[in-house]
Amino acid sequence: MNVTLRPVTAGDLEGFDTGFAGPGGPGPYQWFGHTPTQRLHRLHQERGLLGGDENMMSVIADDTLAGRVEWFRRAWGRVETSACWEIAIGLFAAHRGQGIGTEAQRQLVDYLFTHTRAERIQVCTDADNIAEQRAVQKAGFELEGRIRRAQWRGGAWHDQLLYSTVRTP
């Protein structure tokens, strides 16, 4: 399967609005309840969802919109000296379990190390999300540890696992 990343289009946003609506859309580890999407549309109009502290690209698999990857600025101290990127992925149900997520996250890491000065890229995933754990490990991330009761979702607190990869010289 040919997987590529590209800037989000207005049509992609409509696909995300539809494809990720309701608990079945994003899957059990990404459903946080209904949320407004106007902000995402506004950021797309303002800057194409690129070039800020919150960014997004579309995941294309064999010329079909399969989902999206996102990256957010995080810091382990002062932002000026300790910033890194945290990445996330959302794939439509029909595109899960085919290696698309692994390849998309691998491409996003390459993109960020090529086009930003980041030294570190990290991923947090639910401790029960075995598929994402495998995907990020295959994409070159290493487990750093467990963040206990860090995410409120579905009426309960959930542990998260922190993975990272660092720039190689």
Rank of each mutant, 00 (worst) to 15 (best):
M1Q: 08
V3R: 04
V3Y: 02
T4Y: 04
L5I: 13
R6L: 00
T9F: 02
D12N: 08
L13F: 01
E14P: 08
G15M: 00
G15S: 01
F16V: 06
D17Q: 13
G19R: 07
F20W: 08
A21F: 11
A21R: 11
G22K: 04
P23H: 11
G24P: 01
G25R: 03
P26G: 10
Q30P: 02
F32T: 13
G33F: 03
G33Q: 00
G33K: 03
T35L: 15
P36H: 14
P36D: 15
R39S: 12
L43W: 14
H44E: 00
Q45K: 14
R47G: 05
R47V: 06
L49N: 08
L49S: 07
L50N: 00
G51W: 06
G52N: 03
G52K: 05
N55W: 05
M56K: 12
M56V: 06
M57T: 13
S58T: 11
S58H: 10
I60T: 09
T64I: 14
T64F: 13
L65N: 07
E70L: 14
W71C: 01
R74E: 11
W76Q: 13
W76Y: 14
G77C: 01
G77K: 05
V79S: 14
V79L: 14
E80K: 13
T81L: 12
T81V: 12
S82W: 13
E86T: 09
I87H: 06
A88P: 00
A88I: 07
G90H: 14
L91Q: 07
L91I: 10
F92T: 10
H95R: 10
G97Y: 06
G97R: 03
G99V: 10
T102C: 02
E103C: 04
A104Y: 04
A104S: 05
Q105P: 06
Q105F: 12
R106N: 09
R106H: 12
R106S: 10
L108V: 09
D110V: 13
Y111L: 09
L112K: 05
L112W: 08
F113H: 08
H115Y: 10
H115G: 02
H115A: 04
T116C: 00
R117T: 15
R117Y: 15
R117L: 14
E119S: 13
I121C: 02
Q122I: 02
Q122S: 03
Q122Y: 01
Q122R: 02
V123R: 06
T125V: 05
A127S: 11
A127R: 12
N129P: 00
N129E: 04
I130R: 15
A131E: 14
Q133V: 11
R134G: 08
A135D: 03
V136R: 05
V136F: 06
K138T: 09
K138A: 06
K138R: 07
G140H: 12
F141R: 03
F141I: 05
F141H: 07
E142L: 09
R148E: 09
R148W: 09
A150G: 02
W152T: 08
G155I: 09
G155W: 08
A156C: 12
A156G: 09
A156I: 13
A156W: 11
H158T: 04
D159A: 01
D159I: 01
Q160A: 10
Q160M: 12
S164P: 03
S164N: 10
R167C: 05
T168N: 15
